[in-house]
Design a binder for these strands. Structure first.
Length: 748
DNA sequence: CGGGTTAGGGTGTAGACAGCATGTC
DNA sequence: CTACACCCTAACCCG
């Protein structure tokens, strides 16, 4: 089908697509059009990665907008939201407006009501529904990207329930679901009353195979000689082989440490194939990476990048990740070793993909477990850059003949596992039963069960009694904790129940917080950090060897500060959880006491990305705790201490600096410098001697000017002011001249 | 004064051992 | 990451 034959799109779009080089639709795209995506028909598209799924969604949304409607595009990851927004913005010249919504707090985001296309994560959409965003009812088209993720135990139920809600609000809603190729896409299509478009077609060839001995064995039965010199390992040999052919490689491994170690080795193998120009650009990039964060991870990454390789995992700060991803896409970085983060994230195609580790440690299983077929297929799907590579190649590595056979059977020839709903579990229903009642989708037990009939679980289930019994258990739980009230068949959310639903808290988190805050007339920062750290909304930090003793000691030393009862050492499991929450709490306390970033990452053996994540979650939960304290009327002192604790993690400073950190461009370090110079509040900053401010800021005039302007100084200009800097300040200014004196946290 | 002894610090290496992916509001 | 062997040096003691 030709692009020119498309109808129902905004004027100019078809021509624009042709200018982008899209003359003819790919077969699955044409099939979707025939199924009626541009006419408002619901479609499930189950096609391989990088086969033009996005265009199917775009055609559906644009046609819907052209008919006067409004479209929503649901992404699985925050990082993908901005990527998609950027893509869709190319249609703004045809009068189609785009908006994104992700992130922290409860809101209805009314400004989105005049956008034609909205991009959001499933949790954000759920939150918007709970907060009663009026524009949700105006939606005419919803796209669910990567819908196979309904299979995910943690986040799948949210997507499932959210789609059910949107479809209940508007029975005529067009639903377009994009999926990787999975075994049971027909069941998904059934659930969504959609037509199934299934295809194995790819725009560029993907060869998959296994390396074993001195040969590559491919899926089509062919073999290619590939000998690895003794002393060399197959991964680096394959990577430098690709590079000598002008291609880049992606290596998937099973742990962060492995990713970092592999990047070091890959750098050594890749380094001698770099041109002088590339070396210079890489050196520049390496310094930029180093400046992102003050931590060993940041230094190690910079060192690897200087050699043309990089690692990628969730311990990296977001800026690290985007720098690496962009440079890899620009073909500057030649190889990345990554944990599975990269397979699910933003688009980073590569000539060759090597799945080095196909087993991963799983604490629940107590050992190594093979990766899911779907997961490995997603990794392999990253091979081949459309328009750049003649073909893509994805390889697994085998150490012996048995493994060769096993890898072929498990991954090369196997179909991915079917998608199964995970809705009928306690954590999922605890949250969604409350939200469903609180936002008015059901007002009785029968209504609730009827609503749940709209989910994938119901279409798949052979055991409907299970959903019912878990639902009943959760109704009891929610009633017992005062979130719901029941009168016969009727169910209603209480005031606090509504608040919990809108704050997007797990009811169990809310119960824990309410319990801890009640009867506390005073709360220390550590006590509050521990309170939020032990809710199910904050993931636990591992207790490493020696941590048990260390935190047990701290637990007894500071027993008086904890809110709620401390479990005894005889309740082994609860005590363990308590200690690991204490570890998180003391991390937060360190951060809020101005301990340096590199000390924290080292002390808790985490990466800068983990630190930022913890801080962000703590901020969100403390905000929620504050709202609950107000709602429950726990008194101004409690509310004030929560607020102070929240602001301290937000800026990473002691309480005495909170008066300064509100000023733009003043972070934890500069606030401390100003404070030491005798400037303690915004007012004092505004009225301070310029020379004092300049001295405190280590003599940097530009920063001093912007800070004074941000503090509201009538005449911030600094010229010819003497610097009152003593020698130690001058030395520090020297040491500091690389960064801008800010930790870099706080503006993410 | 010369030779020997000893404690202390630093360096290098082998082997044991723990730890092991991700993520939304 | 620890235990251990090993080397070097400085300080001290004794004949």
């Amino acid at each position: 089908m030709q692009t020119a034959e498309l109808s129902g799109l905004p004027a100019g779009v078809a021509d624009h697509l042709r200018e982008e080089g899209i003359e003819e639709l790919y077969p699955p795209q044409a099939e979707a059009v025939e199924a009626g995506v541009t006419e408002g028909e619901s479609v499930v598209a189950s096609v391989p990665t990088a086969s033009g799924k996005t265009l199917i969604a775009e055609l559906a949304m644009l046609a819907s907008v052209e008919r006067g409607g409004k479209a929503l595009y649901i992404v699985p990851l925050r990082a993908l939201a901005s990527e998609k927004k950027r893509e869709f913005e190319r249609f703004e010249e045809f009068g189609v407006s785009v908006g994104v919504s992700t992130g922290n707090y409860e809101s209805d985001e009314e400004w989105l009501s005049n956008r034609d296309i909205v991009v959001a994560t499933s949790e954000k959409v759920d939150s918007l529904v709970r907060n009663g965003a009026s524009w949700i009812e105006e939606l005419s088209c919803v796209v669910a990207d990567e819908i196979h993720l309904v299979d995910d135990a943690n986040r799948g139920p949210t997507l499932e329930v959210t789609l059910a809600k949107l479809r209940q609000l508007n029975p005529a809603l067009q639903t377009v679901a994009l999926s990787a190729t999975v075994g049971n896409a027909d069941e998904v299509a059934d659930w969504l009353d959609a037509e199934l478009v299934h295809s194995e077609w790819r725009p560029i060839d993907l060869r998959t195979g296994v390396h074993y001995g001195s040969a590559l064995h491919f899926d089509d039965g062919s073999q290619e000689e590939f000998a690895v010199e003794s002393g060399d390992n197959p991964t680096t040999a394959l990577v430098s082989d690709t590079l000598s052919d002008g291609g880049s490689s992606l290596v998937f491994v099973n742990s962060r440490r492995n990713a970092e170690a592999a990047a070091r080795r890959l750098g050594n193998a890749v380094e001698d194939q770099l041109t002088g120009e590339e070396r210079a650009e890489l050196a520049e990039l390496a310094e930029e990476v180093r400046g992102v964060s003050d931590s060993e991870t940041s230094d190690d990454l910079a060192d690897a990048i200087a050699n043309g390789a990089a690692f990628h995992h969730a311990g990296l700060a977001r800026e690290h990740r985007t720098l690496v991803e962009d440079a890899f896409r620009d073909r500057l970085i030649k190889a990345i070793s990554a944990t599975p983060t990269l397979a699910a994230g933003v688009n980073t195609p590569s000539r060759r993909v090597i799945v080095r580790d196909w087993q991963r440690y799983d604490g629940d299983a107590g050992g190594m477990k093979p990766l899911a077929t779907l997961e490995v297929h997603q990794m392999m799907g990253r091979a081949g850059r459309p328009g750049l590579d003649p073909y893509g190649e994805a390889l697994l590595l085998a150490n012996n003949h048995d493994e060769l056979d096993e890898l072929f059977e498990r991954y090369v020839w196997a179909d991915p596992e079917p998608v199964r709903s995970k809705l009928a579990t306690e954590p999922a229903l605890r949250t969604h039963v409350l939200a469903t009642v609180a936002s008015g989708f059901a007002s009785s037990r029968g209504g609730l069960l009827e609503f749940l009939e709209r989910t994938l679980y119901a279409t798949q289930s052979t055991d409907p009694g299970r959903l019912e019994s878990v639902t009943d258990r959760m109704l009891d739980y929610l009633e017992r904790n005062g979130f719901l009230e029941r009168a016969g068949e009727d169910i209603e959310a209480t005031g606090i129940g509504h608040t919990v639903s809108r704050l997007y808290l797990d009811p169990m988190s809310a119960a824990e917080m309410v319990d801890g805050l009640r009867g506390a007339d005073d709360a220390s920062a550590l006590g509050l950090y521990h309170l939020v750290a032990r809710t199910p909304d904050m993931w636990e930090l591992y207790l490493r060897s020696g941590d048990r003793e260390k935190y047990t000691e701290i637990a007894y030393e500071r027993e008086a500060e904890f809110l709620g009862d401390m479990p005894t050492e005889f309740e082994a499991e609860r005590f363990e959880d308590w200690l690991s929450a204490l570890k998180t709490a003391s991390l937060l306390e360190d951060w809020a006491s101005e301990v340096e970033e590199d000390r924290i990452t080292e002390r808790y053996s985490i990466g800068p990305g983990d630190l930022r994540g913890k801080v962000e979650t703590a901020q969100w939960l403390l905000n929620a705790a504050e709202r609950l304290a107000v709602e429950l009327d726990l008194g101004p002192d409690v509310v004030a201490s929560i607020s102070a604790a929240r602001q301290r993690v937000e800026h990473g400073v002691g309480e005495e600096l909170l008066g300064l950190t509100g000023v733009g461009n003043v972070g934890r370090k500069r606030a401390r410098w100003l404070y030491e110079a005798g400037i303690e509040t915004r007012d004092e900053l505004r009225n301070a001697e310029k020379s004092v401010v300049l001295g405190a800021l280590r003599g940097r005039e530009k920063t001093a000017e912007t800070i004074l302007r941000n503090a509201g100084h009538p005449n911030p200009a600094i010229e010819g002011e003497g610097v009152e800097a003593d020698e130690s300040a001058a030395v520090e200014a020297e040491a500091d001249s690389r960064g801008d004196g800010q930790a870099g946290l706080g503006d993410f």
